[in-house]
Simulated assay, not measured.
Amino acid sequence: MGVVAKRSSMTFFSDGSSHYSHRVRIVLAEKGVTVDIVDVDIENKPAELADLNPYNGLPTLLDRDLVLYESKVMMEYLDERFPHPPLLPVYPVARGQSRLWMYRIERDWCRLVDIIEDPKSKVKEADTARKELRESLTGVALIFSEKPYFMSDDFTLVDCCMAPILWRLPNLGIEIPKTKQTKPLHEYMERLFARESFQASLSEAELEMRLQIKL
Rank of each mutant, 00 (worst) to 15 (best):
M209E: 06
T60E: 01
S14K: 00
W109T: 09
P92M: 06
R130H: 01
R23Q: 03
E206F: 05
K31I: 07
P119T: 05
F155K: 04
S71R: 09
I105F: 04
Q97Y: 13
H84P: 10
L61R: 00
L61E: 03
R95S: 10
Q97W: 11
L87F: 08
L211P: 08
E48I: 15
Y20L: 05
A163Y: 05
L137A: 04
M74H: 12
L62E: 07
D114Q: 14
E117M: 12
T11G: 00
N56A: 15
V3H: 04
D65S: 09
A94D: 13
E190K: 14
S18K: 00
V123I: 13
C160K: 04
R7E: 09
S18M: 01
L61C: 06
A194E: 15
L62A: 08
V38M: 05
T11S: 00
P85H: 09
C161V: 03
A94Y: 00
P86G: 06
N53L: 06
R7Y: 06
H186E: 09
L142M: 10
T138Y: 01
D153S: 06
D15M: 02
L185W: 08
R111Q: 14
F198E: 02
S201R: 03
E125V: 14
P59F: 02
P184V: 12
P184S: 11
Y20T: 04
T11M: 03
